[in-house]
């Protein structure tokens, strides 16, 4: 798997894909995109790193335990929900305190979508790394 071209391309592509995923997350409210798609794209980026440089490198590149990331994501979803709940009395009610100040509606819904993004990204990456490591274990046993 250690192809020089793949490794080099990955170094170059990964930040690009990650930036793209954030962009897709943010534009999701008005254009095609959103948390699910963005999150999957993050996982694709790390799958690329994993294929090019191995699980260890991918884990290092992520800097944070992927399941923790997923947990933070769920927390963001909950926080987005409670935000509306506390301000308006309805759980998950949309709140936009900075509507259109930044060119897109910033508020509880965006926080919720960010949660989806992080949860999907974290979970899929976690399974990916887990599968690859378990694969090594199986292979190791067969040797």
């Amino acid at each position: 798997m250690n192809s020089l071209i793949l490794t080099t391309a990955t170094r170059f592509l990964t930040p690009l894909i990650l930036a793209l995923s954030v962009f897709i997350l943010l534009r999701g409210h008005n254009e095609p995109g959103g948390g699910f798609i963005g999150g999957l794209l993050v996982a694709v980026a790390f799958a690329l790193v994993e294929k090019a440089e191995g699980v260890e490198a991918a884990r290092r590149a992520m800097r944070i335990e992927p399941l923790v990331l997923a947990g933070i994501g769920l927390g963001c979803c909950l926080a987005g929900g409670y935000w509306g709940g506390i301000v308006h009395g309805d759980f998950l009610r949309g709140i936009w305190p900075w509507y259109e100040e930044y060119g897109l509606p910033v508020g509880s819904i965006l926080l919720f979508d960010l949660g989806v993004y992080l949860a999907v990204a974290g979970t899929v990456s976690a399974i990916l790394f887990g599968l690859e490591e378990a694969g090594h274990a199986v292979a190791g046993r067969d040797d």
Partner: peptide
Amino acid sequence: AHGRNIVNVILVD
């Protein structure tokens, strides 16, 4: 819901 992408608005709002 202040969103133009109806699919995404259904999902997150």
